[in-house]
Nucleic acid binder design. Structure first.
Lengths: 187, 187
DNA sequence: CCTAGGTCGTGATTTTTATCACGGACAATC
DNA sequence: GATTGTCCGTGATAAAAATCACGACCTAGG
């Protein structure tokens, strides 16, 4: 299972066996069942999770109790509450499993230690964060410029695989429309 | 003027005079007039710009010719077309000046060189990128969960200073609503 | 086998927002 | 000092999406 993590890192920086063993020693592993929480609103967020298998969603609940899907992550994605993790503030989202999910995770302390000791890893995280930022910008452009149908097509293009695995209501919320509107698009 | 850049970096990593001089040697400086372009759609994007004074907006034009404000940046913000800059692809946005604007800018090559040679700078850019990612996530949550009035209030909270300096039509586009809808909110 | 919960489609209606159109205020330019 | 362009508000109308409501289907669990 840790092989997946290695492959993922080596897409950006090559590692010797020894280096990877060292990296690995900073990670822990945990399996979650469907509907189980990785993070709950208000939690102190210790870890950033790498998804080895399965699928999770990150949701924010507004004042009137409505839930909004901020993020969806499956294999080879990282997921956490970034603000809570990096700034050590309470979690503002719930992250729970849409499918049974296996994760490798790393604490902020371990991540910072690892980055200091192994230059390559700092570079790896910089690249990953940059990629995440670029993806966010694309989603923002989609949200400010596209109607419901175009948003769905964006999803089809960007994450075709997810559509079969995630309930439509979750897709709808991720796209910022209602379940009903999404359901009526085919017409 | 380079003082502003130093202060900005030193909010995250302290620098000796010598280190800062070295950093500075990787930057260039340029002043732009109102309505002048920093980057135009299709350009090869060589630089990431740090705004010393003034204000710029980044706009994407869709298929039917409508322009959408992807980003607004004033003093102490960095701005570029991140995807084009990092992945060396043609620019997908126009970045132009809302006010006369002074910038310090750094090429990707210089940035990578500087990061390799001065560890602190790689850390600095990681922190900046992370902060940008977190801000994007907040904007996404706003866009999927808030109506026009709530979006405007988000703007009031996050960037109160910008409202006086930027035309309402630009604010509206940034929030993903029309100029007319924004104008009618007070009622 | 039956039930409860989750998922999805769809109709009827209301609400929100976009679109189109116009005029006024103001500043910059010649 | 007339003119042009930009910015902003607002009315009338159309379009899009949200809301509320219902029933069908499926499957996991007692």
């Amino acid at each position: 299972m840790s092989n997946k993590l290695r492959q993922h890192i080596e897409e950006i920086v090559p590692l010797t066996d020894q280096e990877f063993q060292y990296v690995l020693s900073h990670f822990s592993f945990r399996k979650f069942k469907k509907r189980q929480y990785l993070i709950q609103q208000g939690d102190y967020v210790r870890n950033d999770f790498f998804i080895l298998s399965g699928l999770v969603k990150s949701c924010s609940t507004d004042q009137i109790g409505k839930s909004h899907v901020v993020f969806i992550a499956s294999e080879n994605w990282w997921v956490s509450d970034p603000e809570a993790y990096h700034n050590q503030t309470p979690a503002t989202v719930d992250i729970d499993c849409v499918e049974e999910t296996e994760t490798g995770y790393i604490s902020l302390e371990n991540r910072e230690k690892l980055c200091r000791e192994l230059r390559k890893l700092e570079y790896f995280f910089l690249r990953k964060t940059t990629a995440g930022y670029i993806a966010s910008q694309k989603r923002i452009l989609m949200l400010i410029s596209a109607n419901a149908r175009e948003r769905y097509q964006f999803m089809l293009l960007q994450y075709p695989g997810l559509l079969q695995r995630v309930p439509k209501s979750v897709i709808a919320s991720y796209l910022g429309v209602t379940r009903e509107t999404l359901s009526r698009l085919s017409t």
